[in-house]
Design a protein around this nucleic acid. Structure first.
Length: 496
RNA sequence: GCUCCCAUCGUCUAGAGGCCUAGGACACCAGAUUUUCAUUCUGGCGACACGAGUUCGAAUCUCGUUGGGAGUACCA
């Protein structure tokens, strides 16, 4: 039987780098074995899934060059490849009903509040947290009557109460063994009539002829349920293989907060798909000859599923950058030119209006806009200190403004545009000016410091490294909060 | 709490009982090339978590400890 594998991402939010990682492994495994690679969209959570998100997954996979043989937008003999469409076909309901008729699943009428209370009690008693199976014994006829009367219900699997579940994952040293009594009566069909992941995935993997389910380790715990479902539905289970989870630097599961996880971000940032793929491949797989730079074609030629490392690798952006540099410098001149154009164009239209009245030649844009493209600027210390004032004054000013903007940026409803920033800074000026009323020399110096024309120049130099720039608040707005705050800090260092 | 998984330099990894005084890559440090920077090249720093056991011999096998991670949803 020929190999068929799949990735089954859920279209919530941005396409995830973990999807690319698992996708790459599945893709290589399929290609290496002359099999098929399928993309299926798992959108059974009506509250979280969006079509835009699904589209972004298609686009990202294609961008990376992970071409799927079957999928929502390319079709195939096992469609539809979107679960919400399959729900409408009644596919999952049929299988859920079959389990109920067989006595392998049952109606449960617990309310969310009831379930919550159950959990709280178990937590308090240091008991394992799981459904207490209170509706397990309900008569089917009674259950059906209540359901027919409109009472909300879910369908739960009737997990075995004794015996042991054993499964050997080819990548793990020892077989997974777990007593059945520790396995929850998982909900299979939700009260909205839609299937949970567990039911939908098992049914679809079967219907789509999937032979190997290669997925992340986070699924290992639900493996018994999936095997059980296969068996009780009369399917031959695919082989399940669990690979390690991508990690943050602190070893926790990779997350948005601690790492860029959106594939869209990498693309926008200018990462080359070849570099990203190469990097991802290095996390967990290795070439027998130790080669670290290779194409997708080279990888799929030697790929060995059994060489995959299951310990979750830390996602090291620095190494990705290094690879990216290698690939970038090798680019054909035309390709490199278009990458540079892309990078410039990304900000060009937003920036151009700021320079319109300042330019004499088109080329003036190059040096005038430089601070907006650069990673950092290097203001001269002497330019940061206004005439008649000293370094401490300038530093104090930078510190106060930095703090104010930092606090503002942290606000949830903060709008980072020129009018708002103008307001924020002018409020600060008013506060400061009020405090320094008086006629001692020091008070006069401070009064001068907090005059807009003095202070604007200090900020301008700190932010752009130049004494001339577009209007200050347009500059701050374009720079964005991150660079603004960073550059205000760097300027303070210069004054030490 | 309960259940499960994992464990070689800071990070990604090679290593499937003697080839290991543990190899490579990123990062870091030093030097060379470069007017500068980057690239490139050379060198350096740096790890088998710990403890028992099996064995003539253990990074490699077993057990325990410790550490880390995941799951514990009518999310996937």
């Amino acid at each position: 039987m020929s190999v068929r594998v799949r990735i089954a991402p859920s279209p919530t939010g941005d396409p995830h780098v973990g999807t690319a990682y698992i996708g790459l492994i599945n893709y290589c495994f399929a290609k290496r074995n002359g099999g098929a690679f399928v993309l299926r969209i798992e959108d059974t959570d009506q509250t979280r899934c969006t079509p835009e998100s699904a589209q972004a997954i298609f686009d990202s996979m294609k961008w990376l060059g992970l071409r799927y043989d079957e999928g929502p937008d390319v079709g195939g003999p096992h469609g539809p490849y979107v679960q919400s469409e399959r729900v409408k076909l009644g596919i999952y309901r049929t299988y859920a009903d079959r389990l109920v008729e067989q006595g392998d699943a049952y109606y449960c009428f617990c309310t969310p509040a009831e379930l919550e209370a159950m959990k709280a009690r178990q937590r308090a008693a240091n008991q394992p947290i799981m459904y207490d199976r209170r509706h397990r014994g309900i008569e089917l006829s009674e259950a059906k009557a209540r359901a027919a009367a409109g009472e909300p219900y879910v369908i739960r699997m009737k997990a075995p109460l004794e015996g042991e579940f054993v499964y050997k994952d080819r990548l793990r040293k020892q077989a997974v063994a777990k007593p059945w009594k520790d396995i929850d009566d998982q909900v299979l069909l939700k009260s909205d009539g839609w299937p949970t992941y567990h039911l939908a995935a098992v049914v679809d993997d079967h219907l789509m002829g999937i032979t190997h389910v290669i997925r992340a380790e986070e699924w290992l715990n639900s493996l018994p349920k999936h095997i059980w479902l296969n068996e009780h539905l009369g399917f031959t289970p695919p082989e399940y293989v669990h690979v390690g989870l991508l990690r943050n630097a602190d070893k926790s599961k990779i997350s948005k907060r601690k790492n860029p996880t959106s594939l869209l971000w990498y693309r926008r940032q200018g990462f080359l798909p070849e570099a990203l793929l190469n990097f991802l491949a290095l996390l967990g797989h290795s070439f027998p000859d130790g080669r670290e730079k290779f194409t997708l074609a080279e990888l799929q030629a030697v790929f060995e599923l059994d060489r995959i490392n299951v310990a979750g690798p830390v996602f090291d952006l620095q190494k990705l950058r290094h690879l990216q540099g290698q690939y970038f410098r090798e680019l054909e001149p035309e390709k490199m030119l278009s990458e540079v154009h892309r990078a410039v164009d990304a900000r060009f239209s937003a920036l151009l209006p700021l320079f319109k009245e300042r330019m004499t030649f088109g080329g003036d844009f190059i040096w005038q806009a430089e601070p907006f493209y650069a990673d950092s600027v290097s203001p001269h210390a002497e330019d940061l200190v206004p005439k008649g004032l000293d370094r401490q004054h300038a530093r104090l000013l930078l510190e106060q403004v930095q703090l104010t903007l930092k606090n503002y940026a942290a606000l949830e409803q903060a709008v980072w545009d020129a009018p708002h920033l103008d307001g924020v800074v002018r409020t600060l000026i008013e506060e400061r000016s009020a405090i320094v009323e008086g006629d001692s020399p020091e008070k006069q110096a401070l009064a001068k410091l907090w005059q807009p024309k003095t202070l604007f120049m200090v900020l301008r130099v700190a932010l752009t490294g130049k004494r001339e720039s577009p209007p200050l608040f347009d500059t701050i707005a374009q720079l964005g909060s991150g660079k603004t705050i960073e550059r205000l800090g760097v300027a303070q260092q210069k004054l030490r």
